[in-house]
């Protein structure tokens, strides 16, 4: 998964896509995941990290993660 090169992500969770002019806002966990994706961490690594840090079970995490990635793809933020 590669983050669209043109996309600017700030640590506040603000995303700006200069190609489309759209901007987005993310909650802290979404920002955290995107940061990890930027560092080329794998899905397994990211999920393990989150399981370690947060009070969440695997299936809820998997579903939330898939849904989030799906949205990022739809928004052309990752490809």
């Amino acid at each position: 998964m590669i983050i669209n090169k043109k996309i600017a992500v700030s640590e506040t969770g603000f995303i700006f896509n200069p190609a489309t002019g759209d901007s987005y806002s993310m909650n802290p966990i979404a920002t955290e995941i995107l940061e990890m994706l930027k560092k080329d961490m794998s899905e397994e690594e990211i999920k393990n990290f989150l399981l370690e840090k947060y009070d969440v079970n695997k299936s809820v995490l998997q579903k939330s993660y898939d849904e989030f990635i799906d949205t990022l793809i739809k928004l052309n933020i990752i490809e």
């Binding site: 969770g13 700006f16 901007s23 806002s25």
Partner: peptide, 10 residues
Amino acid sequence: DISEFEKLTH
């Protein structure tokens, strides 16, 4: 600039 908008929304 978009940064102003970012600042406001955040």
